[in-house]
Design a protein around this nucleic acid. Structure first.
Length: 454
DNA sequence: CCTGGAGTTGTCCTA
DNA sequence: TTAGGACAACTCCAG
């Protein structure tokens, strides 16, 4: 009996649980649906997705199959395909965002839909406290997560052959632009993982913070679309911990594993507390009186705040659709704590521009920085962007790479030219605002007080 | 129900 | 130059 394999954010053949289940039942029809109702994705991310679909089709063809593309309303398109191919069931990998849950409920009301858990190592409902409620603090969550992890997690290899009925109608893929720094597709993801496992992983705990080095995995766009499965990455991290020689390499591999657990933590938070996508997790901080100065927001987006490290970060984002993790925290902190602009404005801009733009991870990160989230940054942790810059871009090479106006400046002055009375042609003479921690603390305090009175 | 330890990613001042 | 401690008070979580 033929079945439909509905692909969404699991664009891989390796360790794909939904594909495996479908294959056990017989021939499969792999389909991706372009539903105009899903306008949530940015243009930039759509390019990455379309290129990924192209690569996915190529990988399927190498195994005797191919990708069917359909356009239009999801329920209608799946219904037609089910009828045309005389299929029995639709198998698909379970996704946990509010949009996906709603969409899948709608599909399940009309069609035989079979959700397969495969996106995470643990289902969001699987790791709960003794009293049955979800964790909202990372460390105890990660302990329970690790304690419950099966000792064997070996990823299933990609099937050698996929039996698909011939000549099923498929629409052409929309045109797309390729991004030279982030070629899309599973093969690229596997190459990067391999590279990372041979090189950066064993010094990750230190180098991951250095914006001037390539110390991170750069796997986030691939993880978002499931071109690399989170479970595969977790398996790789554990293998690296076992193989590591020495304390530092071992700790480094574990730090990377913890980053992957953070992904699951935020997937799980969004699943149990969907309101975080609209407002603060912490209700007492839902009413901060933001200044929300539009022109300052524009300057931030354009990388023209006058703070070199912030501008480098924002220009990196704009130019390549990706930003170093440390840079994300610095740029986010500057927007929220220094400019007092609503973290949701920043969150939306990141979503628009990041190839890895992921509701759960992005929202979790922004709420953490803003101090409004689960397990948030303590109130007194207000990043000083200049100190961060000196510490994590010591020679100023990251700044020079993304802010050409400052290329001539010495590394002693590049982090804060205005403090040395220096001006650079075409670059703001001074930062947008003077650093004022008290102003920030007051805004947060007032929100808390207002909520207490209610 | 009570209790005590702990909490991703910092900053700044003092000695 | 560097190391250490203060920075609030609160909530979470496990025993």
């Amino acid at each position: 009996m033929t079945n439909i394999w509905w692909v969404r954010r699991d664009l891989r053949l390796t360790d794909n649980a939904a594909l495996q289940v479908a294959l056990e039942a017989g021939p499969v029809v792999p389909v991706f649906i372009l539903d105009p109702a899903f306008s949530g994705s940015s243009l930039r991310r759509k390019d990455f997705l379309y290129e990924g679909l192209h690569a996915f089709d190529r990988d399927l063809r190498a195994r005797g199959s191919y990708l069917v593309i359909r356009k239009g309303n999801t329920v209608q398109a799946l219904g037609e395909l089910l009828w045309e191919t005389d299929s029995e069931t639709i198998y698909t990998e379970e996704d946990f965002t509010p949009y996906a849950i709603k969409r899948d409920e709608e599909v399940a009301r009309h069609l035989p839909l079979n959700l397969i858990h495969g996106q995470t190592a643990h289902h969001p409902n699987a790791i709960l406290k003794a009293n049955g409620t979800p964790y909202i603090v990372y460390t105890p969550y990660s302990k329970a997560w690790k304690a419950n992890l099966p000792s064997r997690l070996t990823p299933a290899p990609a099937p050698e052959k996929i039996d698909t009925p011939v000549r099923i109608r498929s629409e052409p893929l929309p045109r797309y632009k390729v991004s030279p720094l982030f070629p899309s597709g599973e093969q690229e993801a596997l190459t990067r993982l391999d590279e990372f496992l041979h090189r950066q992983i064993f010094s990750y705990s230190e180098d991951r913070n250095r914006m001037d080095l390539e110390g991170t995995s750069t796997l986030s766009p691939y993880l978002h679309f499931g071109m690399l499965g989170l479970r595969q990455a977790i398996h790789a991290a554990r293998q690296a911990m076992i193989q590591a020689r020495g304390e530092m390499p071992k700790r480094s591999a574990e730090v990377w594993l913890n980053e992957l657990i953070w992904r699951e933590f935020y997937i799980q938070i969004l699943f149990h507390f969907p309101h975080v996508s609209q407002t603060a997790f912490n209700a007492s901080l839902a009413n901060i009186e933001w200044i929300n100065d539009e022109s300052q927001f524009e300057a931030w987006k354009a990388g023209r705040t006058g703070v070199p490290i912030v501008d480098a970060a924002m220009r990196q984002l704009r130019e390549i659709g990706w930003m170093h993790n440390r840079a994300r925290m610095i740029a986010a902190s500057y927007l929220v704590k220094d400019l007092l602009i609503d973290w949701r404005w920043g969150e939306a801009w990141f979503m628009e521009n990041l190839l890895d733009g992921d509701l759960a991870a992005n929202n979790g990160g922004w709420q953490w920085t803003a101090g409004t989230g689960t397990d948030a940054a303590p109130y007194f942790r207000i990043f000083n962007p200049v100190l961060q810059s000196i510490k994590f871009d010591p020679n100023g090479n990251y700044i020079r790479r993304w802010v050409p106006e400052l290329r001539q400046l010495d590394s002693k002055v590049i982090h804060a030219p205005w403090e040395h009375g220096l001006k650079a042609k075409g670059y703001p003479d001074r930062p947008l605002v003077e650093r004022d921690k008290e102003r920030t603390l007051l805004a947060y305090q007032q929100s808390k007080q207002r909520m207490e009175r209610v």
